[in-house]
Each structure stands twice: as C-alpha cells, then as structure tokens.
Design a protein around this nucleic acid. Structure first.
Lengths: 342, 342
DNA sequence: CAAGGCTACTGTATCGTTACAGATTTTGCA
DNA sequence: TGCAAAATCTGTAACGATACAGTAGCCTTG
C-alpha cells in the first residue's frame, strides 16, 4: 500500500485527545520532529520565528516531554532521591525536610523520590542502588558520619549529592549542616548565666559527625565558663524515650546530680523531662535545660525549657538547592552551608 | 565492512562494567533478546532449562531492568505518587505515612514519588499532572472531602488510587480511614465517666469528610450520655496554634466554660492546653481532655490528657497495599479499611 | 561567478524494552 | 511414514526523545 510516500518524518496525524508528543507538534507545524525538539530547547540553529511558532503550538496542546523518552535517550532522570532511614522515625524530622526539598523542586523539572533503607548497617545499599540503576540524577543523605562510605562511593563515581551534616574525609562535597558546635556552646553559656555549675549533655550517637561538633562546642564552653561537665554516656539521642528516661531518673537522683542539661534532640528532651520530674526535680528550680528542637511544640508545653530551633525545612531547601547546583556543575566548595539556631 | 553478518540480534559483545541489559544476557547465553526478556518473565513458550539458565546469568551479572525502557514501551511507571500538601505541615503527619508506605513498597518494584501542592485550592493540580503525564501507576491522597473532585477525576479516568479518608459520592474506591466517629464517641464517653457535663469539640475543618464523622460520633455520645455540647466554631484543627490558643483562652474564661474537651488533633491540643492554662485552669481539676494523637509525645508531657492514638504509619501501610492491589485489579470494595485508636 | 560559509532545517540511528508475527524443530498420532 | 500440532525460539517495529551527520538554499567575497 501507500507506506513509502513519506518525505516528512511525521506523516500520520497523531490522534487527538492522546497525549501530545513531538510528533504531534511536528505534524501541526509542518516541521520535522528534530526541528521541534531543537526549537523547544532554544537551540541556536533554529529560526526565531520558527521557535516562536513551535512554542506557541506546544503550549497550546499542552505538550510535556515524555520523561521515559528523555531518560532512555539521555540518561537524565530528572529525579532527586532522598535516602531515608525508616528507623530515624523518632519525632519526624522527615516531614519538614521533605517539605523543604519539595518547595525547591516544585519550580524545577525534578521529582522527589524517597529511597528508604531499613537498618543502619544497610545505609550503603540504597545509595548503591541509585548509582547502579541510575535511578536519580542526585542524592540527598543524612545521618552523616565522619568517614562516610556513602560519600566515598559517590565521590568516587563522581555522582552529584548533598549531605545533611558534614564529613571529615578531606573531600569537598555539598552539604548543609546545623551549627551544633555553636548550639552547644551557646546552650552552656546560657546555663552558666543562670548560675548552673554541673552540666550534662544528651548527645548524638558517637558515630555521627555532629556528635563531634556538639561535643566540641560543649567542651569548649565548659572550659570557657568554668563549668563542671557531668560524664554521661549511657544513652544518646538515638535511644528510645523509655531508655532515656530511665537513664535520667538514675542520673538525676544521684547525690551529685547535674543542675543543667543540654539536650541535642527535641524528642529526647521529652524523656529527659519525664525522668527528672519522676524523681521530684523541677525545671527552672532544681535544674535548667536547653534543648535543640525541630519545632516549637516543646516550648508550648514546657516553656521553662530554653529552646533553640533547628529549621529542618530550611535545611531541606538548602540541600535541594545544593544538589541541583551540583548537577548543573557548580563546584562543591560553593555549595556548603551552615545554619544557626533561630 | 562486516556489518550485515548478523544472524543474531546481539552480536557485539556488550562491554563489561557497563550496566547489563537484556542484550548482555542474550550475548552471554547465546539466546535472542526476545527470548531473554520472555524467559525472565517466565513466559510459557520458553523452555524450562532455558529459563533457568537465563535467570542464573541474569542474577550473576546483576541484571535489573531499565525502568525507562519498560516505561517507554509499556507505559508502566512502577511509581506510586503520594500527593502532599506543603501546608498540612503542622506537627508532621507526613513522616509516618511516608514511612508506612515505604515499608510496603520496599518489597515491591515500586518507587515512591512525592507530588506536592501548595494551596488547598490547587489540590486538583497534582492529580491532574499525574494523570496527564502518566507520572505514576497509582496515587495516594489525603485530606479527603465528601465530594472530592480528585476522586471524581480519577474514577472517571479509571485510574488506581487510594484515599486517606472516605468520601460520600456513592462511588466505591479504595480507602483507609481512622474511625473518627468511634473516637469522638469514646472520648465523650470517657469524659462523661469522669462526670464532665459540658463538653466542647475541637474539630476538623468543615470541608473535610472526617469532620462529619467526628461530629457524628460526638453528637451521638452527647445524646446517649446526656451531655451538654458547648457550641464552638471559631477555630478548627487547621488553624494555627496561636489562633487556637486565643480561642480557647476566650472560651475557657467565660462563666459557662466547658469542663471537658475533645481534641481532634495532637498539635491542636498543645494550643488548647496553653489556652486553658493561661486563664488559670488546670487539667484533671477544672477540666478533662481527650485528644487524638499521632504519637505519644503528648502523654509524656501532659499525662493528665487522655490520649487515643491514631497509627498513621499503619495507615500508610494500608494505603500502599490498597493502591497496589487496585493496580493489580482487586475490586475497590475489597480495599476499604477502617482502624480504631490503639 | 565559483567557492566557501552561514542559516535553517531534517532523516537516521539509538537508548532498553516488549508486542507481535513468524520460524524452526520436535512431538504426537493416524 | 506423513503431517498437523505443539514447543521453542527469534527478528522487527515501536514507545518518545535526542545526538549526529547531513542537506538545501542563500549570502559573501575575491
């Protein structure tokens, strides 16, 4: 039959009320598919008037590039993957970070994909998955360690990513971090100002980088203000609330109990308060407390606690901006930011 | 040159340490690409021994189907989209639902994509986007309304979805919902048991379906237990904490203030407590309160409040299971579930 | 006015997969 | 033995996009 009479690529009228493709626009404008493709990306070898016409028709029919097509041909996924531990689900830091990232991605072509992992020891698996399958153009990770194998892997493969938290590997990569050192220093300073003399720190787990930062700020302030740091390693902010409460019940009922507490986590603070109140101590009277918090719920219910807010949503925004810029080629050194308590 | 001597599809040895494709396996096994493809999907026209061989090699080389290829050819995205309001970010219900969904999707081939929208009036936009671009195989939405245009649209297009919350459109669709009627009824019952007689309800906004459920349970209990329901419509759980506190300050300082409170939201309860305490009332003495909560933080800080837990993570799991089953063809009627406070 | 260069456009091949329509060999049975 | 049916396997085309290598026409320029 009449199958060979094509001088154009696009000969058959693409049926309406199907999703428009380049072919649709090519047919409507009488141009070649290639021309339409290049016109839409504003290539230099397409006439100005043609571009205008193509853009108009594209808009008219509501053209949106088929992501699978682009991805297959170019390898670009237009996806940012947020790697999440299903366990760090204590007091939901996830919400605000997801919201922050979404806010930024909304005005770009990127989609946000959640890539979960179940146990801390599997933290590398999701990253490997993304790298091996090319599931995303960039990755955001959290719970960063000083010597983080995920960072090493992605750097080695030259894969764009940003970390919530810093590393200590001598490698420059995009990150956003809260100034935990500043937080701890300031926290101790405030307690010192309130004439507290024996201060304890509920700190992050040892293996996370920000443990060091917080510790550093705490220790420095302790020296600067002549405070006695109460040794305390039985629990950290990753322990369950029940464990934290138990530990603080013990600690606070000892004869040499601390009179000041710095808590590195809002959720942890709840358990701390429960613990100290269980042994009859009262905030502001027997003990003062400064807590880092992700939202202001604690100050509503226990205004006696001094809170310093870590804006996780802002962190999400910064991280999203950083990965995208990294993908676009911005040097990692320019994509590192720190934020203070607000 | 020697370019036409192919009796096989796969002639050129696919370079190693590139991502393996069907071609790689075809080359290694000496089979055709089609055969490999069909062998891996256990098609009936492939020999048992061949299938075994193909599976072995596939596993050996770590073959994972290229999603873009599959998606382009079949239209199947292997993506579930969670449609999220960037505003419902009060007290993060997002975290647990994301975690719950992820838990289920982890053992399937599905990825989770977050599709956000900014303002309530744009709620339809993300759904339309997914439908128009084929961005996902299924959608999960929340903040369901009795007559929900999103539901209408997806039903009309016969697109798989599940809703967090029910509708009242006479259409059967998959949903998971918390038994808000049961919650409110039980809440009032408990307050009645504590000899409270004038009870107020901090309810969801009128336009959401579960407003009706909660209201219904509340009103029925009020009748059953001979309680006086205190009229209160100045704020709902979608108002800011500051607004809620202000409203409750006013309410609780009135001469005929309620002596019992039912709160439909954990975050809202915080503001309620702040409000009543600001005017000198005390929980358990002047007033009792029952609150629906998504986590147990409230009972740690205000054990005087009676809490009833809504397991959002479980809801996420149920919703994920429901969409997937719907995609697989299970009738909507079999994918509807309700859960009670735990 | 020929040669070269520029502008504007286009066809072909390809990414990885699967639907479809064969093709080849083996088996079953009269 | 002959031949249809069954059992296996395979090539081609297509999904939608883009990289690449053109082509055609027109304008300079010496």
């Amino acid at each position: 039959m009449d199958e060979k009479n094509k001088s154009r690529q696009a000969t058959l009228p693409p049926s309406l009320n199907e999703r428009p493709t380049l072919k649709t626009i090519a047919f409507m404008t009488g141009l070649g598919i290639t021309t339409v493709s290049r016109a839409l990306k504003d290539a230099s070898d397409i006439g100005a008037e043609t571009k205008e016409r193509v853009r108009l028709v594209a808009k008219q029919v509501g053209y949106q590039p088929n992501r699978a097509g682009v991805r297959l041909r170019t390898g670009k996924t237009n996806v940012i993957s947020l790697v999440l531990s299903l366990e760090e689900e204590v007091m939901g830091l996830t919400s605000p970070i997801v919201v922050g990232i979404s806010e930024i991605l909304a005005s770009t072509g990127y989609h946000l994909v959640i890539t979960p992992y179940r146990f801390s020891k599997d933290a590398l698996a999701p990253v490997r998955y993304v790298l091996d399958t090319g599931a995303a153009d960039g990755v955001i990770i959290s719970r960063t360690e000083p010597n983080d194998p995920r960072v090493a892997l992605m750097m080695e493969r030259n894969f764009p990513f940003a970390t919530h938290g810093r590393t200590e590997m001598g490698l420059a990569h995009p990150y956003h971090d809260f100034d935990n050192e500043g937080f701890a220093y300031e926290a101790v300073r405030r307690l010192a100002e309130l004439r507290r003399r024996r201060i304890v720190l509920l700190q992050p787990p040892q293996h996370l980088t920000f443990h060091r930062h917080m510790r550093k700020g705490f220790d420095r302030a302790v020296r600067d203000f002549g405070i006695e740091a109460v040794p305390f390693n039985s629990v950290d902010i990753d322990n369950s609330l029940v464990e934290i409460r138990a530990a603080f019940e013990t600690l606070m009922s000892a004869p040499d109990a601390p009179d000041g507490i710095v808590s590195g986590s809002g959720a942890g603070s709840i358990a701390v308060i429960a613990g100290l109140e269980a042994v009859g101590k009262r905030l502001k009277h027997d003990v003062d407390m400064v807590s880092k918090v992700p939202s202001d719920f604690l100050s509503w219910l226990r205004p006696e606690v001094i809170t310093m807010n870590e804006d996780i949503r802002h962190a999400g925004r910064e991280l999203a901006k950083a990965v995208i810029a990294r993908i676009a080629g911005t040097p990692a050194e320019e994509l590192q930011s720190l934020s203070k308590a607000v």
